[in-house]
Structure formats: C-alpha cells, structure tokens
Computed example of a mutant assay.
Amino acid sequence: MCIGWGLGNLDRTVINYAIIHMADELTLSATQTGWVLSAFFLGYALMQIPGGILADKIGAKVVLVAAVLMWSIFTGLTAIAGSFVLLVIIRFLFGIGEGGFQPAAAKVIASVFPKKHQSKAMSLLLASAAITLVLVPLIGSYLIVSIGWRLVFVCAGLVGLVVTLLYRRYIDVPPLKKAGKTSVAKVFKSLLHRPLMWLLLGTFFAIYAVNWGLTSWLPKYLTDIRGLALIEVGLLQLVPGLIMLVCMFCYGVLIDKLSLQANKQVAALFATGIVICLYLMFFAETIVGFIVYQSLIMVFITYIVVLLPSILLKALPQAVVGTAMGIANTGGQLAGFATPVVIGFLIDYTDGSYVSVCYLLMACAAICVPNMLLLSTSVDTHSSDQS
C-alpha cells in the first residue's frame, strides 16, 4: 500500500512544480492556476464517501486496484492538455480516480492490525507521502526542466499501470466479515450523529487547508517573490521534506504510547505553533529563516495529520471505518479544492501579494486549536458502544 500511496502523492504533487512551466505555456492567470491545482481535490473529495462505502461493502482490494488504475490513466492524459479547460477536466477526473484509495487503505489497516499498532501502521502509510515530498522537489524539478512537464506525466502514468498489476497480483486483504444487513443510509446517518465525525471533518479541513495551501503555492511563491530558480526551490524543499519524513515515523510510535488526553493537548499546542511559524515564515528576511520556519511547520503539522486518522481508527468499529474515513477525509480534500483557488484569487486581487495568503493560512491553523481540545469528549462519549 505504501508504494501506491507514495506514487499517488507523487502524481498529485509534481504538478505544483510543473505548474510554473504549464502556466507560462498555457498563459494561465493566478486564478486559473489555482483552479488547475484545485480541480484534482474536488474530484478527490467527491469520491471520499463513495470510496469508503464501497470499501466496506465490496472489499478494499477492489477499490485500491481501481483507484491506482484510474489515477494512472489520467496522470498520463495530463500530458495532452492543451488548454485551461481540458487541463481542469483531466485533473478533476484524476481526483475521482484516486479518491477511493485512502478510505480503502484505512479499511485494510483496521482489518489487519490490532488497535494498539494502528497508529504506527497509519504513520508508515503516510510516510510514503512524505518520501514523495522529499523526492518530487529535487527529482521532479530536474526532470521538468530537462525533459519537459508533458513527458514527466507520461512516465508517471506508465509507472502507475505497472503498480496496478502488482496490486492485482499481490495485495492480500482479509475477506469481509459477515455482518447484519445494515443499510448504507443507516450507517451513514449513525456516523453523522456522532460529534466526533463533525469535529474530525472540520479539523481535517482546517489542517489540510494549511497543508495543501503551502504545498500547492510555495514553489511559485519562491520563484516569483523570492526570485529562486526551480532547481534551487527543489533543493531547499528537501529540508522540510526530510524533517516531515522523520516525524512521520516517530509520531506513529509516540501517538500509540500517549493517552488521548495527552495527544489532544500536544496537537493543540502544535496547532498554535503552526500559527506563529506561518507568520514568521512569510515575513522572514532571509531564505534561510524561511526554510527554518517552514521546517518547524512540518514538525507541527505532521503530528496532527497522523493523529486524526489514528483517532478515527481507534474510536470506531472496523465495519464502518471505510465509510467514516471517507466522511472525515472529505473535509481535508474540500480544503485541498478550496484553498488553492482562494489563494489564486487573493494573489490576483492584491496584485501579486502573499500577505493575505499568510493570514488566511494562520486562521485555518487557529481553528485546529479548539477542535483538538474538544476531540477527547467526543471520543469518550462513544467509547462504550464500539462492540
């Protein structure tokens, strides 16, 4: 699963570097650039809940294989985009294809691993995305400059087709357990009656607004505002990427060892740290200061990103984990859709300034503080009915 998740993140992340050349070639405004970066997340968000339901009903392996196949096809098709509209359509369908992967992966983790090891398993899965964030800035930026963005997407799509065949042959998921005939509507309604789900959905939205806002626009910010070449951006982004990777591995173990009360206090403290570091990062006078504060943001944000699905895995019955992850992660992917578009609009509206972008991301991070502090009550309330 880690190979597939890493590839999926590579396919969706490389466009954040390719968009610099794509925008020039297709003469895209900042607002149009935002729509291109967001289109994937709209499709991805729309597929979260259906993907989770399908994983619970027909099995996680079917959803995983279908997801890798579809996103690989549309990654490759990105290379033929010759206009803004066609590019948006392809990226949207790419998001639809990948949307079922994470709910299905959560279903596998819930089925295979005991609860005391599920945070570690989830952190290993998420770490594959962190590896991508290390590789894409360096290798991706080099390939985009040397062979062109179109050929990069063709190669990524072909690798995905190979991974699809490997998944079909080697992924081994326990068969679905026989369960009572509980309707999808009843499960869905039951989950939405839990305060936990609404808090998770809101917190997923807030933290991923910061995450995807930074991931999607930082390369362009560093080239346009800080005056760096694309290769220089790739080299500098290795530092926060490597820090995020190390944190992914460490936090999975730490979260399993700490109590829920301790975890939510650490997460609230780290969310406060994100707010402060965002301000210091955008107003840093030197590029060294910028990277230092960005790296601290990665330390803080990674903890929350690992903790949120871990809470869900431990608080809910295995039979509904796929659907529940789909609901919660919808918030994160709607943020991935909305944030780049809003940022693009703000940049156009303020004649290229990123000051309003800084305050937007700070506000999103601040939302996480009360949400994390409220999560424990929500989990405790329902902890007695998990059988």
Rank of each mutant, 00 (worst) to 15 (best):
P114K: 01
T215S: 13
R169M: 14
K220Q: 11
L228D: 06
F40A: 05
V187G: 10
T286I: 07
I343R: 00
L269V: 14
V266F: 07
I147E: 08
G100D: 11
C368N: 02
V355A: 15
L258F: 11
Y359F: 12
L346Y: 01
T203P: 02
C2V: 12
A365D: 05
S376T: 14
A328P: 04
W198E: 08
Y354H: 07
I49C: 11
I49A: 12
L242N: 04
V134K: 03
D224R: 09
V173W: 08
F84W: 00
G326N: 11
P195R: 05
V355T: 15
A18T: 04
V275D: 04
W5Y: 15
L126P: 07
S259L: 03
V239E: 09
F153C: 01
D56Y: 02
N9E: 15
L42Q: 04
G234Y: 00
K264M: 15
K314G: 11
A363T: 07
F283Y: 13
E98Q: 07
L361Q: 02
S111F: 05
G4A: 14
L26N: 00
L64K: 06
A284I: 04
F84K: 00
V88S: 07
K178L: 09
Q102P: 15
S119M: 03
I287G: 09
Y221I: 00
M298R: 06
Y208L: 07
W71V: 11
L312M: 11
